[in-house]
Design a protein around this nucleic acid. Structure first.
Lengths: 161, 161
DNA sequence: GGAATATAATTGACACGTCAATCATTTCCG
DNA sequence: CGGAAATGATTGACGTGTCAATTATATTCC
C-alpha cells in the first residue's frame, strides 16, 4: 500500500465522504419524517419518552435523563419545555435536592410512546435493515464502531511512527 | 438463512441502527465544529461558497444554486439572507427574468472559502478517512450506495415473492 | 456560622430547517 | 389582448440546537 496518512483525501475518498454524509443525513431525515407522520413525534421526543418509559415510575431527574440520552442540559431543558407544553411530560421538583427537577411521563406521553414503538421498529427495518444485506448490516456496525472509536480519540492528526 | 423480512429488527440490528445513526450524527457534528472553529463557516456556508466558486463568474441563479447543492428554495433563501448580512455573498437581480435572483460571491466570500478548503480537506481525512481501513472506506461507499438506492425506492415494505 | 465555590437547571439570543402562505413576474391560451 | 396558471423567490411561524449568562440551591472549608 502506498503512503496514505498526512495527505489530502483522494478524489474517490472525497466522493465517498460526500456520499456517506449526505446519505446518512437523508436516512435520518426519512426516519424523522416517518416518526412524525405516523406518530406525531420528533426523534427527540422519542428518545425522551423511551428513556422515561424504561425508568422507574416513568420519572427521571433532568441530569440523569440528559446523561441517558446523551444530550446537553440546555438542549434537554428546551425540549422538555416544549414537551411539557404538549402534555407529554410533566416537571416536578426533585425531593431531597431542591435544585433538581424531575421529568415525569404523563398518561398522554406513555400512550404516545406506546403508539409509536411498533411503527418505529417497522421503520427501522424498512429504511435501514431491508436496504442492506446481512453482511452490510454487520459492516455498518463495524464502521460505526471504528468511527466512534476514532472520534473518541479526538479524530486528530495521526502519529507517524 | 432464516426468514428476515416482515419481522421486527433483532436486538443486534437495533443496536447497530442506534450505533450507526448516533455515530454518523457525531461525525457530522465534529465536522461542523472543525469548520466553524478553523474557518468561521458552517457546513451550509461551505456548500454555498463551493458551488459559487465553481460557477462561472462566481454567480448563480438561486434556483440553480439550490439544485446544485440539493436544498429547498426556502432554506437557501434564509441562508443567503444570513450570508448576505455577513458579506459573504451579494444578491443581484437576474437579467432577463425579473422574478429571478442571483447570488454573487463577494471578495470576502471567496477569501473565506479559499481559507477554508485546506483545513476542510484535512478534517475530512482526519475525521473520516484516517479512522477507517481502506476496506472500510470502500464499505462506507457501498453502504451509502445501497441505502441511497433503497431510500430512493421509497424504503417501504418489501414485496414477498 | 457564613462566605466562597460547585452543581442543577433554566433562560435568552441567535443560527438553522421546514412548512405554508405570499408576492411578483412570466407564460399559456382562449 | 388579457386573465388564469405556472414559476421564482421571499417571508413568517415555529420547532430545534448551541452557547453564554443567570438563578437557585448545596457543599466546602475556614
Amino acid at each position: 500500500m502506498t503512503q496514505r496518512r498526512g495527505r489530502f483525501p483522494t478524489r474517490e475518498e472525497l466522493r465517498i465522504w460526500r456520499d456517506f454524509i449526505e446519505t446518512t443525513d437523508a436516512l435520518r431525515a426519512a426516519m424523522a419524517a416517518r416518526l412524525q407522520s405516523e406518530s406525531g413525534l420528533s426523534t427527540g421526543d422519542y428518545s425522551v419518552l423511551l428513556a422515561l418509559s424504561e425508568a422507574e415510575h416513568g420519572r427521571l431527574r433532568s441530569s440523569e435523563l440528559a446523561a441517558t440520552i446523551g444530550w446537553e442540559r440546555s438542549r434537554l431543558s428546551h425540549h422538555l419545555g416544549r414537551m411539557d407544553k404538549r402534555g407529554l411530560i410533566r416537571r416536578e421538583n426533585c425531593t431531597g435536592d431542591n435544585r433538581g427537577a424531575e421529568a415525569v411521563l404523563t398518561e398522554e406521553g406513555a400512550a404516545a410512546f406506546h403508539g409509536a414503538t411498533v411503527p418505529h421498529l417497522r421503520a427501522i427495518r424498512e429504511l435501514f435493515v431491508d436496504g442492506l444485506t446481512p453482511a452490510q448490516v454487520t459492516a455498518a456496525g463495524e464502521l460505526a464502531a471504528a468511527l466512534r472509536e476514532h472520534l473518541g480519540n479526538g479524530g486528530g492528526p495521526q502519529e507517524i511512527p
